[in-house]
Nucleic acid binder design. Structure first.
Lengths: 164, 164
DNA sequence: CGGATATTGACAGTATGCATACAGATCGTA
DNA sequence: TACGATCTGTATGCATACTGTCAATATCCG
């Protein structure tokens, strides 16, 4: 299985998603926000299919960031990958349970939970990396190289505008 | 407030998101999947800012679809907007609590919950529509008209490939 | 120094999102 | 027409996400 939302496929023959609809349409099928939501669904599904259930996209991003920047606190980590402080705690809980990340208090600032990746975590990261890269490739598969570059550039432009 | 994840802004001065990083980088800052996740965050935040807390993006999509296709069951509705059957139930629960949607059993097929929008729901939809359209515009604001068209076309191409 | 302010991690509450499982209903077909 | 395959809505469990709040801790500034 690899389709998104195949459990709800009835009546899709009546109005397939992304079918033509008139201008001034108030439905979601022409809204960029909806496209992005659907693409997010596709990306998450693709990740699960390629990488497996051991590591979610969110957990991969966190683990990768911890490996890249050991000794950061949870808030710093969250800022690095765009998570919410309230969410990152649970993500790290689950990585800690798997033995892939270690939390340790900082002597300098007793508010901080210093984060570090464990050898097992590093191994899991290394193991997952090829599949994660494959996901990115499959995601943009239908675009030719020129389009891919344009797509990524526009994404970055949008993010720089809205986050910067 | 309008920024995404402002509660985790420490250390972002150390490594701003989307800063340059070498090729072969295993971190998420060059991965299309991550871009899409961040864009989804931006879109949801923008929606909340423009439309208000009465209606979430998901609830708007559902309400709009019910208005467009009254008398559909939950599964049909889910297929129409790309939701999961298990998720749509809760969404409709909340719309029903607000008095914007009515569930009624079908005499023809006793499995179905026929869905219909109420006058209050229609009013809420009409009230929200301009703001929802404004969100789409703001989302793609940094792109010029040509780029917008290209971006939407590529999104549709990606979705058609992965969902079709 | 000491109070005002800001930061950090945690928790509760709400809302998606998906997998799995289940009971009831319907349908296709032997 | 009986029966197995399929479909529908629901419930449960897990994993994001974000808001508001709080206690402990730092930091800043007079």
């Amino acid at each position: 299985m690899s389709g998104v939302n195949e459990r709800a496929h009835k009546a899709s023959h009546r109005t397939p998603d992304y079918a033509a609809s008139g201008p001034g349409d108030l439905s979601v099928h022409r809204m960029p926000g909806h496209f992005i939501r659907r693409l997010q669904q596709v990306a998450v599904r693709l990740f699960g299919d390629c990488v497996g259930p051991e590591l979610t996209p969110v957990q991969y991003a966190a683990l990768s960031a911890i490996a890249q920047r050991p000794g950061a606190g949870q808030a710093a980590l969250a800022a690095l990958i765009g998570y919410d402080r309230a969410t990152i705690g649970g993500v790290i809980d689950r990585l800690e349970q798997k033995g892939w990340v270690a939390r340790s208090g900082s002597p300098d600032d007793r508010r901080l939970n210093l984060l570090a990746i464990t050898p097992d975590g590093q191994a899991a990261l290394t193991r997952a990396a090829p599949a994660v890269l494959a996901v990115q490739d499959k995601l943009l598969e239908p675009l030719d190289p020129h389009e891919r570059e344009a797509f990524e550039r526009m994404c970055l432009k949008l993010l720089a505008h809205h986050l910067g």
